[in-house]
Design a protein around this nucleic acid. Sequence first.
DNA 1: GTATTTGCAAAATGTTTGCAGCTGC
DNA 2: GCAGCTGCAAACATTTTGCAAATAC
Lengths: 140, 140
Amino acid sequence: MLVEDTLAHTLAQRGYKLTQPRRAVLKVLAAAGATLTPAEIHRRARSHCLHTGLVTVYRTLDLLTACGAIRKVHHADGCHAYALASGGHAHHVICECCQSVVEFDNCDLGTLLAAVQRRTGYQISGHWLELFGLCPNCRP
Amino acid sequence: MLVEDTLAHTLAQRGYKLTQPRRAVLKVLAAAGATLTPAEIHRRARSHCLHTGLVTVYRTLDLLTACGAIRKVHHADGCHAYALASGGHAHHVICECCQSVVEFDNCDLGTLLAAVQRRTGYQISGHWLELFGLCPNCRP
DNA sequence: GTATTTGCAAAATGTTTGCAGCTGC
DNA sequence: GCAGCTGCAAACATTTTGCAAATAC
């Protein structure tokens, strides 16, 4: 598993261990290819690692987010979902029907940012963009 | 007060009443010019309407959001803040230091959306963009 | 006058912490 | 072997619900 190998390496570099629950959480998100809530991740993780506790899921999500392996995404209603992140600066397109996600990285906002900066006087240092729509499978 | 008159009208149109607590919540957000959490809005609202309860604040925030008078914004950590919305499609630039917000509406994402749509096969129907930075007052 | 709204208390939900025992390296 | 990790229970924070009294129109 490529994703797992990368993770093992990343964790080891920082002095962390690749444990069964951590492996399970990553597997779940990789297999889903969709955004999942902590509760749903917990439910699914138990099929890989039987006694995984919800608390561990929360702690693992924080850790994996810090490592850049996953990313928190915000839905319109709640904002408590996570998706696999392939690394580097990227954004997500999320299917409003099945929650499947795809990343894209060519966010060419240079012109827009410059215009906003000029008009508002704010020195812009970061942005956060999410797209919503229907994936090929959910299209009418 | 222009903001209030508009609100009174919008509410009346839908069969809602303009009550003291609702007025207070709107005043607080208008005066702050920044994003505020429900708890902070509650705290400040009491100076306008003494016995405003936290529950009412929550209900009012939902109502005002439905009316388009305010908008929920998501910060990096939590996502439980609200800001005044001037109506129509718009996005916010948020100061990472003092939380002040400014709206902008010229979000020209046409080219970007078309490219993502072509590459991912998703039919994109909405987007959500927030910018972060430092406002003129907080700049070094 | 009446339907809507409020505030309180209490419930439900979601997240974090403390700590003894277990696991990966 | 030992630092780091886990799971449980329990604390904590946040949001929602039920209902009698109050309010706007």
